[in-house]
């Protein structure tokens, strides 16, 4: 069953066309990685899907889900560093989409937040100040917030950027477990090898769709080889 259908989406960014004619679908239980070089429009596409940036043409249809029932883990920024908020306050805010016009959280919201923390093995962090957590703990809590919001789909924008290998592996493991439990995953990733290992489908973006299909198929394509070369060059240059 289709959750979101994206048809002929074109988006501009600062006057330049960042994406043109992007068409793809997210199905129930999917595990899709969006890959592509720097500046290819990966994050822009994700923001377009979530209604955070306007589309210039094309459409995004929510079929098996609602906007308020999608979990989102934004690209890691300085947001939250030093911010006075307890972990519980942060995870609870994932429930806002459900609350509608209800001004306060109810018992179900509190239970969902507790449950999300528990599923990610972070229930001990509930009373800690968010701003004082380590990078890995912060991402885990933000994943819990996304999980508290999500019914069927979590969208993640470079969730492991800046984390050390051990923490990265742990976070990937958590994400994969959520996927095995039925949650569809749409992840923007810079790490092609991890994407090929973990994701079932690959969406290669570079100004438009270069490939969309099974990860095994993608591994054999020219695009994958070229992207791997690009990434390596970027790494060597950086």
């Amino acid at each position: 069953m289709t959750l979101i259908r994206c048809t002929d989406v074109t988006m501009r960014y600062g006057g330049v066309t960042a994406l043109s004619n992007v068409t793809f679908e997210i199905d129930r239980g999917d595990n899709i990685c969006i890959v592509g070089p720097n500046g290819a429009g990966k994050s822009t596409l994700l923001k377009g899907l979530l209604g955070l940036r306007p589309l210039d043409s094309g459409k995004v249809e929510y079929i098996g889900t609602k906007r308020s029932e999608i979990g989102y883990l934004p690209q890691q920024t300085s947001v939250g560093v030093g911010f006075p908020a307890s972990v519980r306050e942060v995870v609870l805010s994932g429930r806002l989409g459900r609350a509608g016009f209800r001004p306060f959280y109810n018992r179900a919201d509190r239970a969902a937040a507790r449950d999300a923390l528990k599923r990610l093995g972070a229930e001990k962090l509930a009373d800690r100040p968010f701003g004082e957590l380590s990078g890995g703990q912060r991402q885990r809590v933000l994943l819990a917030r996304a999980l508290a919001a999500a019914d069927s789909l979590i969208c993640l924008d470079e969730p492991v950027a800046g984390l050390d290998p051990e923490v990265t592996a742990g976070l990937y493991e958590l994400i994969d477990r959520l996927n095995r439990e039925g949650m569809a995953i749409l992840m923007v990733s810079h790490d092609l090898d991890a994407a090929l290992q973990r994701a079932r489908k690959i969406l290669h973006i570079d100004g438009g769709v270069r490939f969309f299909g099974a990860a095994e198929e993608y591994a054999k394509t020219q695009e994958a080889a070229r992207l791997r070369g690009d990434v390596r060059r970027e790494e060597e240059a950086g």
Partner: peptide
């Protein structure tokens, strides 16, 4: 709107994505 004010202050992108 306390909870909404918290959400947009903490992370405007996330709040907007969930429909605030």
């Amino acid at each position: 709107s306390y909870n909404r004010l918290f959400a947009i202050t903490f992370d405007e992108g996330f709040a907007t994505a969930t429909g605030v």
